[in-house]
């Protein structure tokens, strides 16, 4: 089962290596990991999507909590989270196919951000199934290159990590 875990960490050198080291050392499998600074420049926020049973995820959270650089760990309820991932995708696309592609971007909410006579670069921000659907739609064009940010997530409603 997929679990999404938010982690607030000290924004110091070495913190990411401590976290990733922990994963490999304790044998946790990570689907994605995204890191960025928060509104407080001293604190970064890491979003981890991990696959595993309840016991594994509980251990993962406990082991993360033991790291001194980790300030707070919260396992987000799958029902109660808003998650997004940003993709940049470069595909083959000649001008004659552009209108077909425009239909796809309109339906999926993707944006065309760069065009050459042979290629188009697309940007999309969405979540899980919708992104997979987008991928299926553009695959026939031929994907040349693709980059994903990894999932970031936040709790729905007024509550949140470090807030009650």
């Amino acid at each position: 089962m997929k679990h999404t875990i938010s982690v607030l960490v000290e924004n110091t050198a070495g913190v990411l290596s401590r976290i990733t080291g922990l994963f490999s050392r304790r044998g946790f499998n990570i689907d994605s990991l995204a890191v960025g600074i928060t509104d407080n420049p001293d604190i970064s926020r890491v979003t981890i999507v991990a696959d595993g049973n309840e016991h594994d995820v509980e251990q993962l959270a406990k082991q993360l909590n033991k790291l001194v650089d980790v300030i707070k760990v919260q396992s987000l309820d799958q029902e109660q989270l808003i998650s997004r991932e940003l993709w940049l995708v470069k595909i083959s696309c000649t001008p004659d196919k552009l209108s077909e592609l425009k239909n796809i971007t309109e339906v999926t909410g993707a944006k065309i951000i760069d065009v050459t006579p042979e290629t188009v670069t697309l940007e999309i921000s969405d979540w899980g199934a919708k992104l997979m659907n987008f991928k299926a739609l553009i695959e026939p064009f031929g994907i040349l290159e693709m980059v994903r940010t990894g999932v970031v997530a936040i709790e729905r409603g007024a509550g949140g990590i470090g807030r009650k």
Binding site: G14, S17, G21, R25, V68
Partner: peptide, 15 residues
């Protein structure tokens, strides 16, 4: 600090 990381409670590199 890197080498000892898997088996140390915490470490500091003084900057």
């Amino acid at each position: 600090t890197g080498a000892s990381e898997p088996f140390i409670k915490h470490s500091f590199l003084v900057k």
